[in-house]
Each structure stands twice: as structure tokens, then as C-alpha cells.
Design a protein around this nucleic acid. Structure first.
Lengths: 340, 340
DNA sequence: ATGAAAGCGCTAACAT
DNA sequence: ATGTTAGCGCTTTCAT
């Protein structure tokens, strides 16, 4: 006897997956019974369920989620658009979002926009095409009218870290950017500094603009545009701007850096030259540098968690007016901000 | 006239999305024609295509990917299982994978296992249920027999950073962990050290075990188990182990730390006590500390890129025997490893 | 150049 | 406790 036809020896062609129907045939039951077992629905005799489960294992069956989603409408999927997973701020935020999403038995789709509005939109549209139930977006662009059809179709959207462009009133979770900058500047003023430079991202980026606003307001009459540099944080660029500022008649005696990446780049550009410095965003090892780096710390995990929980509240049916949550930041003195 | 019935004023009920059929009706064509336009298939009169596109915009239509996938079989989706997105090594790897995946017009699903085998398996199974075309896995567990049905169904799998458990011969992309550790130890030996401690993760983690193996082999007769600590990198734990080692008759004069997280924790536990140190993994600011931290650097982006490209090669139909790619590492002297 | 019909694998609604 | 049927929105195949 060379032909083995016992069901447990059946080998499927690569690429051909068993379906519920195959399982049903193998177990000698109707398709619906398999469905019941797979979904843990009641009303199946234990012995029958056991037979079905055996068939599932034997065939290596796994449910086709696309078919399920098509039928049910709900995907149990959330989309997250951030700027860059490789940036510690966003990877921390991502992890927190992932944890909340997992806790709701959902899947998370994540994508990096790389600060490109086109890519942001592509990601959102890709996610919508996959019918995510909700979206958390750290926007790169400032026109979000393309989201309208999605919102009308019932997709819930929460913006995090930065607000949407004009004309879209949805939930937001933002940090107190301006307030944090003011705190930083008042701290430096309190330590006797009057010439405080600002080094930050392009003002097109909301957080950079807000932090600059806080800086400017806290400085009042001391504000001097020659002490402001707003551009992408390249080492060469920062170095050039520092050189320019240090060559002024009245050079800066303190620096305020507009985000974590900027702080690190600035420290590198300073190459050990001691100068008072406060940075926006905490970062790993800020405490181990000499001197420790004084920062205005945000909590990326907190932001992620709050945004995700707000989103799930909406998905549960909360239809109140859009919420605008502002998360506080806090100044952590470590030495660099207390230099004379 | 109060009833506006112009098609462009139609508002859909929330949650009710227009389908191809709706677009077809609105444009006065058959469903198949809409499909042709949406997919850029030829054989549609330009004027007709224009009408269809107008209807698409008017209705805010977006294709339902689940239906498409169900019909076509292919999802154009890749799954990535890592240990933790918030770890810079894995977020760097993720970003590289994402870039390659995007370049192939695919979607990436990412999940963190948190070093838990159960969660690793859940993630893989969730991804398979969504019918990913391929998987890149940084395994947390050492039993991957559960992957068999997926492999048989044609899902391509590449393991990265760590190999699969026994009995599964699939593509792997690993770093030269043992070789890197040997380099580190020889470097320290060359600087006159004979008592070199190893601080690393639990040996159940492949990379930790390999690095310990390299450490041990490079030390030869100088190996002393009392100078070895392998456990999760908590500050208290590392501190306790360091205290224990420093209290020995012949305490260590140099440390080798088994990964980036360990290096940072150890530096914190040392609290400025100067001692020769080489760490596995490079990390941000390693150059700005005093002294700079000598490391054996891997390139997480490179690993991600290589793994993703290998995966797409398989998806393109390359059916050669499993490949086992080893990526070199390199020692970067920065000061801490050159202390006497 | 355009369309009609079948069916992907599943779940919901309704029998039995 | 179990089965039958219809249909989710799309692509495929085969007309016209």
C-alpha cells in the first residue's frame, strides 16, 4: 500500500491554504460549526468542538482576516502616523500606543512620514483603504481636508503632538510647548542670563513655532532676532549659527534648544565649550553628561497613552465635542541650565 | 426649492461608505469600469475615466482593501516582530525595514514582543491571519514549530538578530556577536587588563550567550566565572553585581557590557567611578561622555535592510537553500576602552 | 471600450 | 446543538 490517504498526511500545495470549508469537511460538520468553534461562540457540543479543533490543527488552518473584515465591517485595527520611528520621542510614543491598542485586542499599523506631507497623506490613505477603525496622526503637513471623507465615513481621528491644519476640528493631544519654553527661559533669566539664544527647527513645524513663541514672550524686551536660528538640525548648520552668534558684539551667554535632536547636535557642535543650556525634551544620558543637561521634559509615553485612550473612547461611541488635551511639561535642573 | 438632489451634495450616513457600485451608479457606468479606472487598467475611454474619477472624488470613495485582498490572495503586506520599538537598536532596524517595504509598495505591520515568547507567537499568528506575504522575526522564544503551517502555505520568513529554535532552517541575518566580543576582550587585554568582567543579559537570549561565548574564548585561562553577571539590566541588579565584583580579592580592572542598554545602566551604576569599559552596541552620545565610550558597533539599519531585501528576494521567487548572513561589527575606540 | 456574472472566505440571520 | 443561505466589495473571466 503506497497511497496514504489518511487526512493527517494530506499535504497542501504551497500557497493553498485550508479554509473553514476544508476544516468542516475534515471534521464532518457544517461550516458554521467551525465558525462557532473558531470564534468561541456557544452552542457547540464539547466533543464536536474537539473534533473541529483537531481538524484545525491537522490542516494548519488559520482564519482569513480579510474575509472576516469584509463581512463584519470592523477591522479592529488602528493606524498611527508619526514622523520617524527611529526618533526616541516617537518610538516611545509608539510603544505606549501599541500597549493600549493591544489591550483592546486590536492591531496597530504604524508608518513614518519623515516630515513629508505627501507621505503623511499616503500613509493615512493606505490605512483608510485598510479600513482602520481609528487613526492617531502626528501631522507633517498643514492641510487635512483630505481626511473629510474618512471622518464622514465614521473613522475616528486624534491628532497628537501637533494640531491639524485649519478647518478641521478634531481631538488633539498636545504638550504645553509655549509654557515649557517660557519656563526654560525664566529659569535662565533667573540665573542671570540676558542674552539667550534659541536654536530650533523650522517654524513651519508647529512645536518649533510654539516653543519659539514661548521663548519670545518670556524674553520680552530682551528678544533679539540675531540670537534665533530655526532650521533643520544639521551639525554644520548649528555650528555655523553658533559661530555667528558668538561673534556678535554681545554674544549669547546661554542657549535654549528647541528639541531633543537639537540639544544633542548643539552639544556636539559646542565640543565641550561650557555655556549655560536648557533643552526641550529629555533624552537618555542627559544625566550622565558633564555637566548634566537641564531640560524641559515631555513624556512621550504619556502622550501616546492619552491619545490612544481618547481614540478608544471615541470608538466606544463617545460623541462629545472635540477635546483639546494639553499635557504639562516639567523643567528638570541637572547642571547645564544653572551655569552662570 | 429646499430639496437639493444634485449628486455632489449627497451626504452619506456616518459609517456608510460608498462602494464601487455606488461610484458606478453615480458615474452612469458599470462596476467593472470603475474597477478599471481605480486600478489604472487600460481600455477605458478618457472621457469615461474622467467621469468616473469625478464621481470618486464627489463620493469620497476609497477602495476596500479587504475585499480586494480576499479576491486576489496577495496582501502586499509584510510583518515585523521585534523586541521593543522603544529600544534604539530595534527602532533603527524598523525604520530600515519600513524604507525597503515602502520601496516595494507594501505595507508594514510591526509589533513588539517584549521578549515574551507567547507574545511573539501571538504577533506572528495575528500577522498570518492578516495573510502577510512575508515575515521578519526577531524571536523571543526558541520554539518555532508553530510556523510550519505558515511556511507550508507559502509565507516567507527571515529571522533577524537571533536564529530560530531547533528544527527550523530558514534565512537568518545575524551579527558577528562572538567575534565582536572577542575583539572587545582582545582590545582590553592589549591595554594590560587581565581581570575583565562581563555584564550582560540572561544567556537564554541568543545574542547574550554568543557575546559571552566570545568573551570566554578570548579570555581563555583568564576566565573567572565570578566576574560574570548575566541578568536583566536593572540599575539595582547591576549595582549589586558591581559591588560584589569590586569586593573580590582580585577585582576587575575592566568591564565588558553585553548590549547598549547594559552599557548605559552600567555607566549609571558606576556613577563616575573611572574604570576601563567596552560596550557591545553603539549608542547616541557615546562620544560626548567623559571619557568617550569605546564600543563594538553593529549597524541596526543595515541588518534591517539586509533582512528586508532578502525577504523580497524570496517573495520574488528565489527558492535557493536558506541563507545565513553574518554582518560584521567593528570596534570604535573612544577613550573608555583605552584606560589603563 | 464596456459589461454581466461568478466567487474569494467568512459571518449574520434564520431555519431545524 | 447544528445547518442553510445570502451577501460583504472586490477582481476574474468571459461576453458583447
Amino acid at each position: 500500500m503506497t497511497t496514504l490517504s489518511a487526512p493527517y498526511l494530506v499535504r497542501h500545495d504551497p500557497g493553498v491554504r485550508p479554509t473553514m470549508k476544508d476544516v468542516a469537511t475534515a471534521a464532518g460538520v457544517a461550516l458554521k460549526t467551525v465558525s462557532r468553534v473558531v470564534n468561541g461562540e456557544p452552542g457547540v457540543h464539547p466533543a464536536t468542538a474537539e473534533r473541529v479543533r483537531a481538524a484545525i490543527d491537522r490542516l494548519g488552518y488559520s482564519r482569513n482576516e480579510s474575509a472576516r473584515v469584509l463581512r463584519r465591517g470592523r477591522t479592529a485595527t488602528i493606524g498611527l502616523v508619526i514622523e520617524d520611528v527611529a526618533d526616541p520621542f516617537y518610538s516611545g510614543l509608539s510603544r505606549a500606543v501599541e500597549d493600549v491598542v493591544i489591550g483592546h485586542d486590536c492591531l496597530l499599523l504604524t508608518g513614518s512620514s519623515g516630515e513629508k506631507p505627501v507621505r503623511e497623506r499616503e500613509l493615512v490613505e493606505t490605512f483608510c483603504t485598510r479600513r482602520v477603525d481609528g487613526l492617531i496622526v502626528v501631522p507633517a503637513g498643514d492641510d487635512h481636508t483630505y481626511l473629510r471623507p474618512e471622518l464622514e465615513a465614521g473613522t475616528k481621528v486624534v491628532f497628537a503632538d501637533r494640531p491639524p491644519g485649519a478647518g478641521l476640528d478634531v481631538d488633539t493631544v498636545l504638550a504645553d510647548n509655549a509654557g515649557g519654553a517660557e519656563q526654560a527661559i525664566r529659569h535662565l533669566l533667573g540665573h542671570g542670563h540676558h542674552r539667550i539664544a534659541f536654536l530650533g527647527d523650522d517654524p513651519a513645524i508647529y512645536t518649533a513655532a510654539e516653543r519659539h513663541r514661548g521663548y519670545r514672550e518670556a524674553l520680552g524686551g530682551l528678544y533679539d532676532p540675531r540670537l534665533v536660528s530655526m532650521r533643520p538640525p544639521t551639525l554644520e548648520g548649528v555650528r555655523a549659527d553658533l559661530d555667528r552668534m558668538f561673534a556678535l558684539d554681545r554674544p549669547p551667554t546661554a542657549l535654549f534648544t528647541g528639541n531633543g535632536r537639537y540639544t544633542v547636535t548643539t552639544l556636539r557642535a559646542l565640543a565641550g565649550r561650557p555655556i549655560a543650556l536648557v533643552g526641550f525634551d529629555d533624552f537618555e544620558l542627559s544625566d550622565l553628561l558633564q555637566p548634566g543637561v537641564t531640560v524641559v521634559a515631555q513624556d512621550p509615553s504619556w502622550m501616546g497613552r492619552v491619545a490612544a485612550e481618547l481614540l478608544f473612547r471615541r470608538l466606544r461611541g463617545d460623541v462629545g465635542p472635540p477635546e483639546h488635551i494639553q499635557l504639562p511639561v516639567r523643567l528638570i535642573p541637572r547642571g547645564s541650565g544653572e551655569l552662570p
